[in-house]
Design a protein around this nucleic acid. Sequence first.
DNA 1: GACCAGGCACATC
DNA 2: GATGTGCATGGT
Length: 222
Amino acid sequence: MSVSLKRIYDRLFAAYGPQHWWPAHTPFEVMIGAVLVQNTSWQNVRKAIGNLRRLDLLEPHALYAVPPEELEELIRPAGYFRIKARRLRNLLVLLVEHYEGSLEATFRTPLAELREQLLAVNGIGPETADSILLYAAGMPTFVVDTYTLRVLARHGWIAFDADYYQLQDHFESRLPDDVQLWNEYHALLVRVGKEHCRKRPLCRGCPLEELLPPSGPMEPEE
DNA sequence: GACCAGGCACATC
DNA sequence: GATGTGCATGGT
């Protein structure tokens, strides 16, 4: 419990180095990817984004003009393709009808206000909104995901039933307000989560193994 | 064939 | 307010 977040970060960074997040060419691509990756592996999302890129659709007005069924087919490899087509559409309505398709204008909006607008879009929840704010807009907000909870809870650093905002505050209140640090920290947590902290913990060789409680990884309930 | 993946909205109690 | 369920493809 007394392990500092900075020490955890340093171990992860020493083990893995920079993660170069978000894996995308442009801020718009980050936004699209943030929706497509919901409960889905990035590998599948890449195929879908590849389809959009091939047709030069990675731009707000162009994607806005694509008919619903066509969009569904293009993003099919990302899974949940019908619902995600609608979610993308909802996001595009905000961008095109409120900001005239200008991300520059969109990102001039103050953080708290833009966050509200994103959360008001049906299909965008806290993680998707924060991913867009941090990785597309470069705004200081800490992104929380399932790996964040798993990694911290398994080590006994936070309760398994902590909600999104408790986790977010846990980081934001204990770390310097540094966009680059928060960018890298979240990416590193995903990395260590993928390699060692899936539904079944694989703690052997994990950079955080020495920080585990003596009894081993914690489990939910009890 | 089961299990999992960088969530979210909605129904029901 | 808490808990359960649908959404779907593709890799291991």
